[in-house]
C-alpha cells in the first residue's frame, strides 16, 4: 500500500465534487430543509418534523395523481418501446435513406417541450386543427381534448409518443447497427426464420440500448410537466394532473412549500427505486434458461 502514500491524485476529483454539490446535493438538502418546516413567508417558519410527510401521504388528490402517473408512464413504455424497435427495424440500413431517416426521426427531439404543447393544441383543435377538424368533421366523431378526459388522455399520449418514440428508435437503431453481419449469416445458414433471428440475435444484442431506452423513457415520462401543462393545464378537471403538475400547483399555486418539499422527496425516491428495479430486472433478462 506504500505507493498510495502522499498521493494527491484525489485532488483531481475536487471539481467534480464541487459541481455535484452545487448541482444536486445542496439543492436537494434545501428541499429536505423545506420539508420539515411550515413556511409562512420569508423568515417566518416553524419546525414541524415529519408533519408534512404525513400530510402528503394522506392527501387523496396526490394518490390520484400518483396512480394517474403510473398509468401514463406504463402506457408510454408499452407503446413507445415496441414501436421504437419496429421503427428501427424498418429504417434503411444503407444508402441516402439512412441519413434522411435519421434526420426525420430526430426532428421531434429538437423541439422545445412547451412548443410541443403549443403545436398539439393547434393540431387537435376541433375547429381549425388538422387532426381535430379531421376527426370531428370528416370522421364525424366528437373529439375535444378540453372537454373530455379520455380525449385529453389520448392527446397527451399521442403527443408524448410522437415526441419521444424517435429516441427509442434511434437507440434501437444504433443497437441493431452494432450487430456484426456474420450473425445474420450464421442465422441464415442455420435456417432460422426472421422471427427467430429477431428473437435470438437482434433482441438479445439490443438489450443494453433498450435498458437505457426504458430507463430514460420511464424517468422522463414520470416527470412530464411542460407538454400537458401547456396542452390542458392538468384538465379537464384533474384528469391530466400528473405528479409534477400537482407538485407545482402545491408549491407555487398554494405556496405550500413544506408539503411540496416533502412531496418532492417522495417523488424522487419513487423514481430512484423504480429505476433501480427496472435496471436489475433488465440486466438479468435473458440470462436465465434462455430457450
Amino acid at each position: 500500500m506504500n505507493k498510495w502514500e502522499n498521493n494527491r491524485a484525489w485532488l483531481l476529483t475536487v471539481p467534480v465534487l464541487v459541481i455535484v454539490a452545487f448541482s444536486s446535493i445542496i439543492p436537494l438538502m434545501t428541499v429536505v430543509n423545506y420539508s420539515v418546516q411550515d413556511i409562512f413567508g420569508p423568515g417566518q417558519s416553524l419546525f414541524v418534523g415529519t408533519e408534512m410527510y404525513k400530510n402528503v401521504l394522506r392527501d387523496a388528490r396526490l394518490h390520484e395523481a400518483l396512480w394517474r402517473q403510473f398509468l401514463f408512464s406504463g402506457l408510454v413504455l408499452l407503446i413507445e418501446i415496441p414501436l421504437g424497435i419496429a421503427l428501427a427495424l424498418a429504417m434503411p440500413k444503407k444508402g441516402w435513406g439512412v441519413s434522411f431517416s435519421l434526420v426525420v426521426m430526430a426532428l421531434p427531439l429538437l423541439i422545445p417541450w412547451n412548443t410541443i404543447g403549443s403545436i398539439w393544441i393547434i393540431f387537435v383543435r376541433p375547429d381549425i386543427g388538422l387532426f381535430g377538424a379531421f376527426v370531428n368533421n370528416v370522421l364525424g366523431i366528437g373529439f375535444d381534448h378540453t372537454a373530455r378526459p379520455l380525449d385529453a388522455w389520448i392527446t397527451t399520449l399521442l403527443m408524448e409518443i410522437w415526441h419521444w418514440t424517435p429516441l427509442v428508435a434511434l437507440l434501437a437503431y444504433a443497437g441493431l447497427r452494432a450487430i456484426p453481419e456474420v450473425y445474420y449469416q450464421a442465422a441464415k445458414i442455420d435456417g432460422a426464420s426472421p422471427w427467430a433471428t429477431f428473437r435470438y440475435i437482434q433482441l438479445p444484442k439490443m438489450r443494453g440500448v433498450l435498458t437505457i431506452a426504458v430507463l430514460l423513457r420511464f424517468m422522463d415520462s414520470f416527470l412530464i410537466y411542460a407538454e400537458p401543462f401547456v396542452l390542458t393545464g392538468g384538465g379537464p378537471g384533474n384528469s391530466t394532473t400528473f405528479l409534477s403538475i400537482y407538485l407545482v400547483k402545491l408549491a407555487l399555486g398554494q405556496f405550500d412549500l413544506g408539503t411540496a418539499g416533502a412531496f418532492s422527496l417522495i417523488y424522487f425516491l419513487i423514481i430512484e427505486i423504480l429505476c433501480f428495479v427496472f435496471y436489475q430486472v433488465l440486466k438479468n433478462v435473458g440470462k436465465g434458461t434462455g430457450t
Binding site: 456484426p180 456474420v182 450473425y183 449469416q185 450464421a186 441464415k188 445458414i189 435456417g191 435470438y200 440475435i201 433482441l203 438479445p204 444484442k205 435473458g286 440470462k287 434458461t289 434462455g290 430457450t291
Partner: peptide
C-alpha cells in the same frame, strides 16, 4: 442458403447470446 446443406464457422465467435 436455407435450402442448402452447409455449416460455417467464422473468424468471430458467433453464438446466440441468449442461449446456453
Amino acid at each position: 442458403v436455407r435450402k442448402r446443406s452447409v455449416a460455417m464457422v467464422y473468424q468471430q465467435f458467433i453464438n446466440y447470446p441468449s442461449m446456453t
